[in-house]
Amino acid sequence: MHIAEGFLPPVHAAVWTCVAAPFVVHGARAVVRQVRENPESRLLLGAAGAFTFVLSAIKLPSVTGSSSHPTGTGLGAVLFRPPVMAFLGTLVLLFQAVLLAHGGLTTLGANAFSMAIVGPWVGYGAYRLSTSLGGGLSISVFFAMVFADLSTYCTTSVQIALAFPDPQTGVAGAVAKFLSIFAVTQIPLAIAEGLLGVLVIRVLRSVAMPELIRLGVLKAPKVPAVTDAPSTENRAADA
């Protein structure tokens, strides 16, 4: 993730940009619809983008031309669904490339596909699966964060392997090599990110419960049914 500027061959960079573009455009429309239908969610939407920006800006050097770091996209996918994160994640990557020299403009499409598209969708799938199996909100968010992180790095490994296959074992060998190198730093990071997601969702549950209910993350509490007062006939019969 965060493949450096100019690291991918031009053809690969162009192909990944074309693949990612429809998802980003669809995500931009999803963001506009979200703001129009639920204007009160704008603050939480901005917080999800900021959360992704801060986490994914913390990088540890890894394979040449890349880095290891949390992604933060799993939480946004749970709150607003993956299409929204496709747009927010791409904006985050764009700002990081321009302001922090983290990633790049030519590799923006490849980075967006791995972190802003594949990561949120896999993380959201893990969240829904955990929820359907009876997992609570905290457990489901933990799995969403972990799998969004790991799937991002699996995708990045494939992207780099396609660009630079191993001379002896080809693309498959290169994928295995990059995955094994990434695993040293990325598995602990993914677990730490999952635990952080649990803490954040618990804070949001205490300070932004109405917004979480409106977004469908939490169910509205059941209101006890109010029983009717006894009729005049029933009171007379009791007497």
Rank of each mutant, 00 (worst) to 15 (best):
H26G: 14
G27Q: 11
G27H: 11
G27C: 11
A30C: 09
V31H: 04
V32N: 08
R33P: 00
R33Y: 03
Q34E: 15
Q34D: 12
R36H: 13
N38T: 11
E40W: 04
E40G: 11
E40M: 10
E40I: 01
S41H: 14
L43R: 07
L43D: 03
L44S: 07
A47N: 01
A47M: 14
A47C: 10
A48K: 04
A48S: 15
G49E: 02
F53Y: 15
V54Y: 12
S56Y: 05
I58E: 09
K59S: 15
K59L: 13
S62H: 06
T64M: 08
T64E: 14
G65P: 13
G65I: 10
S66D: 15
S68I: 12
P70I: 08
T71R: 00
T71C: 06
G72A: 11
G72R: 04
G74D: 02
G76R: 08
G76Y: 05
A77P: 02
V78P: 00
F80D: 03
R81L: 07
P82N: 09
G89T: 01
T90W: 07
L91D: 03
V92G: 02
V92W: 04
V92T: 14
L94Q: 01
L94C: 07
F95G: 04
A97D: 03
V98Q: 08
L100V: 05
A101L: 10
H102V: 05
G103S: 09
G104W: 03
G104Y: 02
L105Q: 06
L105V: 15
T106M: 13
T107C: 10
L108D: 08
G109D: 12
N111Y: 09
A112H: 01
M115V: 13
A116G: 11
I117G: 02
I117C: 07
G119M: 05
P120I: 10
W121E: 00
V122M: 11
V122E: 06
Y124G: 01
G125C: 11
A126Q: 03
Y127G: 05
S130G: 15
S132Q: 14
L133K: 14
L133N: 07
G134E: 11
G135T: 00
G136H: 14
I139G: 00
I139V: 14
S140H: 11
F142L: 14
A144W: 00
M145A: 15
M145G: 11
V146P: 00
A148C: 13
D149W: 00
L150G: 08
L150A: 10
L150P: 05
S151A: 15
S151D: 14
S151M: 12
S151T: 08
S151W: 08
T152I: 01
